[in-house]
Amino acid sequence: MADPIVVGVDEHSALSAVTWAAREAVLRGASLTLVSVTARPGSAGVPIEAPAGVFEGADEDAETLLARAKAIAMTVVQGRSLEITSVHSIGSPVPELLARSESARMLVVGTHRHGPVERLILGSVSAAPVAHAHCPVAVVRELPHVQPHQIPGPVVVGVDGTASSIPAIDLAFEEAALRNVDLVAVHAWSDIDLHKVRGSRDFAWDTVRTRETAALSESLAGHVQDYPDVKVRPVVVADRPAHNLRKHAETAQLLVVGRRGRGGFPGMLLGSTSRTLTHWVSCPLIVVH
């Protein structure tokens, strides 16, 4: 039961994230750690002069949330074995989750999407772990019409043809095998929208597609041998990887991408494609370091 699945629990994003994390833990034979963090004056992001009364009842609320989250996780188990640990910490959620990511198999965070502002930026408790965690991070949206543990469809993975996407491919094959579903591997030749580039209509796409299809097959070859029961559906497109991954994610139960794409600089922790997808996909998204 080493390397648990860790999920952040708060009043805004807990339920769908907990449900998904519990199912993931059961699939992997891992333990589940529920983490709720209560702020105090002087803790990160909280002025030391903040009135103590502001936090009155916070500990009790946190314990109630954790008990609720554990009950939700147990409904997913349905008689199967799942070790659940509840942790109530004092401080700031982001440092706590990042510290726990060092020994976690996966970190799961929830996020909402209500209006235009929320569509443009994830809350800091979700965004910071995606960019800085030491393990894969699953982002699970809290949407009323989506039950993440009941979503049918394949696993989708983004393949950019570089070494940076190999860890994402590894995890995507593993997830598809655990779920006994197909794997859709999406590879885009260009990161930009070619329709906006002058003269792009003149390039020989058929020739490029043949070459890029071969490159995609090469990226997947070793994994296909390791997971012979996983049916792979390769998809090669000319451009706009975020757009095409989002399109395939509409009918997927999970989307897996690397944290930094082929054009990322060493100091850039989150590539443009993964950053865009964290804002816009409805299915659970795993971002892999």
Rank of each mutant, 00 (worst) to 15 (best):
V9K: 07
E11L: 10
H12C: 01
S13Q: 05
S16C: 11
W20F: 13
A22Y: 08
E24L: 03
L27T: 06
L27P: 03
A30Y: 08
S31E: 13
V35N: 03
V35A: 00
T38Y: 01
A39P: 13
R40Y: 12
P41A: 14
P41E: 13
G42V: 04
G42H: 08
G42L: 07
A44N: 03
P47N: 07
I48T: 15
I48R: 13
A52M: 12
V54L: 14
F55T: 01
G57F: 03
G57W: 06
G57E: 11
A58V: 08
D61P: 01
A62L: 05
E63M: 01
E63C: 02
L65S: 00
L66G: 04
R68V: 01
A69Y: 09
K70L: 08
I72D: 14
A73N: 03
T75F: 05
V77T: 11
R80M: 08
R80V: 00
R80Y: 03
S81L: 13
S81Y: 07
S81I: 05
T85M: 11
S86L: 04
S86A: 15
S89L: 14
I90D: 15
I90V: 12
P93F: 12
A99T: 07
E102T: 14
S103Q: 10
V108P: 13
G110K: 03
H112L: 05
H112D: 01
H114Q: 04
V117M: 15
V117S: 06
V117N: 04
L120W: 02
